[in-house]
């Protein structure tokens, strides 16, 4: 058996991250965070003001880390609130600067430092998706490769979906929008995210899967439900196709803007490359950026999830190098 040190290190980090983000509060005997339910109906429209009453400058660090785990993780998880949750919540409720600024500082810091490192090493949903693919390999099932046009379509759909979700989060704060439209669109990202179904089931809180919105527009509810089912099926297709949901994930789309320019860079020495295509085959996001690049040194691509599988499997010595602020940390 060949020892691929980066891949094995990544697996260990992924398992620890999964346990911490999904079961951290239980395992470490931390006090469960208080779950505050609030909705956009007339009765509870002032709840946001209560939620953000008397904020402190360090409150966001005590309650959730933006860009981290799913808010549907019940009381067993730690640091509730993912990147999209933070952005949607901020656009809808417009919380005080005391809430926005610390979260934004932390979020930007993590993105500039690590970009999509979160996707490849820490995201529990991405980890489970890879485990589905490992199960396929174990059972000997053949992998289905995405055709190039399908990958391009998924990428474009990811941008469109992210823009639509952020716009809907902002639009439901407008006073003239009807309550029947506002209610199902509140946390629209969560309503269509596969994590809304997977996380509560894995953390033992199926009650968190709330699909009922009394008084809401039926057409909108059906649309959101169809999207949720479609995206969940796409997620489970990771059993036969690599990381299928990750190619569309809105959180990943936001992080992808920081891939080129973050402190982590992946460099290629084109003179050492023998065009063996192992990197192209190994990539869980099925990008050809590393394989095809001939002139540029830095080969970070928006779809790269910084898993460094290409670096780990590259047979050519020092052909691929991962650097943090110019200092080499991994070499092929």
């Amino acid at each position: 058996m060949v020892w691929h040190k980066i891949t094995w290190s990544r697996r260990v980090v992924q398992v620890l991250s999964f346990l911490f983000l999904f079961y951290g509060a239980t395992l470490l005997n931390l006090k469960p965070q208080e779950i505050k339910w609030y909705s956009l109906d007339g009765k509870n429209q002032k709840m946001a003001e209560l939620l953000y009453a008397n904020p402190t400058w360090t409150q966001p660090f005590q309650t959730f880390l933006p860009g981290r785990s799913c808010r549907f993780a019940g009381t067993t998880g730690t640091f509730r609130g993912c990147l999209m949750y933070f952005l949607s919540d901020t656009l809808t409720w417009r919380p005080p600067w005391k809430v926005i600024l610390p979260s934004l500082a932390l979020l930007l810091g993590l993105m500039v430092l690590l970009a999509r490192f979160w996707c490849g090493w820490l995201c529990p949903i991405g980890f489970l998706s890879e485990m589905l693919n490992e199960a396929r390999r174990f059972t000997g099932l053949a992998r289905i490769k995405f055709p190039a046009w399908w990958l391009a379509t998924l990428k474009a759909a990811g941008y469109a979906l992210t823009a639509a979700l952020l716009f809907s989060a902002w639009a439901i704060s407008w006073s003239f929008v009807a309550w029947s439209v506002k209610k199902p669109l509140y946390l629209a990202t969560c309503q269509i995210c596969p994590s809304k179904l997977i996380t509560p089931l894995l953390t033992g809180f199926p009650v968190m899967i709330n699909l009922q919105f009394p008084g809401a527009s039926t057409a909108l509810l059906v649309t959101l439900f169809v999207l949720l089912v479609m995206f969940t099926l796409l997620y489970f297709s990771s059993a036969v196709m690599k990381r299928s949901w990750c190619k569309l994930c809105p959180g990943g789309v936001i992080l992808s803007f920081f891939n080129r320019g973050s402190f982590l860079t992946k460099e290629k020495d084109a003179l050492r490359c023998t065009k063996c295509a192992i990197c192209a085959d190994a990539c869980p996001m099925e990008t050809l950026a590393v394989y095809e690049e001939k002139s540029r040194v830095i080969v970070d691509h928006t779809q790269c999830i910084q898993c460094y599988r290409c670096v780990d499997l590259c047979p050519e010595k020092k052909c691929l190098t991962v650097k943090f602020l110019g200092l080499p940390i991994f070499k092929s």
Partner: peptide, 15 residues
């Protein structure tokens, strides 16, 4: 606010 705005400006600038 000065601390956090400073951190945000620093990270955006670095990026």
């Amino acid at each position: 606010e000065y601390v956090y705005v400073g951190i945000i400006v620093l990270f955006v600038g670095l990026f």
